[in-house]
């Protein structure tokens, strides 16, 4: 059999976390105490003895429900095998965190080392305008590896005291925790550019201080189309609210 497919064999790597390709993450669990937290529903394949535990909440730690009552969609993977993770063919990026804090939209976290510390936060303004898809965010600190996802190649914008950065709230994936964030709306241009309904018309986020903002080209679907299509689509594909689709496309 001949095919260009065979160029896509498993990547050999010494690293415990290795990108199989830009859309798939390979994690070598390799035994005790090296477990990994991964987003539920993202396992596409595994080899060897791997166990999955989705009851993180009862397992204690900080798995408290968020203010909205949402629970985190994370599961613990442990054992002695290799796990392949992917979600909706989104681009995956492995970050090595070394005590610089990063705030990530919860929908875009694919996997993280348990050595990292994290808090569930909700980003919203006093006016009740929820930023970043209205969902929960994770403030992640400490040392370890973190895998996040974006739809397509992302954009890293540098923020300096001289250079403020504005971004559409729904396109923002993550930012340095040290940044000052605010929601803004230009009075001169009402209702013009807002991407989706979820963030309030015409509002965008501004970032000030020193750090970086990670922006992605888009979510997978415009929410209106998605919502229209959602019912039939999900039913057709055997997916429901609990499916792997959740969050990533439901952002707004």
């Amino acid at each position: 059999m001949q095919s260009s497919l065979f160029a896509h064999g498993p990547v050999q790597s010494q690293d415990r976390w290795a990108l199989q390709n830009s859309q798939m993450l390979k994690i070598d669990l390799g035994g005790q105490m090296r477990d990994v937290l991964a987003r539920k529903g993202t396992m596409v394949a595994f080899q060897g003895g791997v166990d999955f535990d989705g009851h993180l909440q009862s397992g204690g730690e900080r798995m408290a429900a968020t203010a909205t009552g949402e629970e985190l969609n994370l599961m613990r993977c442990f054992g002695a095998g290799t796990v392949y993770l992917a979600n909706l063919a989104q681009s995956i990026h492995v970050l090595d965190l070394n005590h610089e804090g990063i705030t990530v939209d919860g929908q875009y976290v694919l996997a993280l080392d348990p050595t990292l510390s994290w808090n569930v936060v909700r980003v919203e303004s006093d006016q009740g305008i929820a930023a970043v898809g209205g969902g929960y965010n994770l403030e992640i600190g400490g040392q370890g590896k973190l895998a996040i996802m974006t739809s397509g190649k992302p954009l890293v914008m540098q923020v300096t005291p001289q250079q403020e950065v504005f971004a559409d709230a729904d396109a923002v994936v993550a930012w340095s925790t040290s940044l000052v964030t605010r929601m803004e709306a230009q009075l001169t241009s009402q209702r013009v550019w807002s991407r989706r309904g979820g963030t309030g018309e015409g509002w965008n986020m501004s970032f000030q201080g020193q750090g970086y903002v990670l922006v992605q080209p888009s979510e997978l679907l415009p929410p209106t189309v998605f919502q229209q299509a959602a019912q039939g689509f999900l039913a057709n594909r055997g997916l429901g609210q609990q499916g792997g689709m959740r969050g990533n496309t439901w952002g707004a």
Binding site: G41, A86, N87, A89
Partner: peptide, 29 residues
């Protein structure tokens, strides 16, 4: 119940074979 995905309804497919066999997986479920 603990397994990822669709209300606990998902199953995995298990493959056993001799050398030379392979499976193809996509990063999209």
């Amino acid at each position: 119940t603990a397994y990822p995905g669709h209300s606990g309804e998902t199953v995995s497919l298990q493959f056993r074979g001799m050398q030379g066999h392979f499976i193809v997986v996509q990063p999209y479920e």
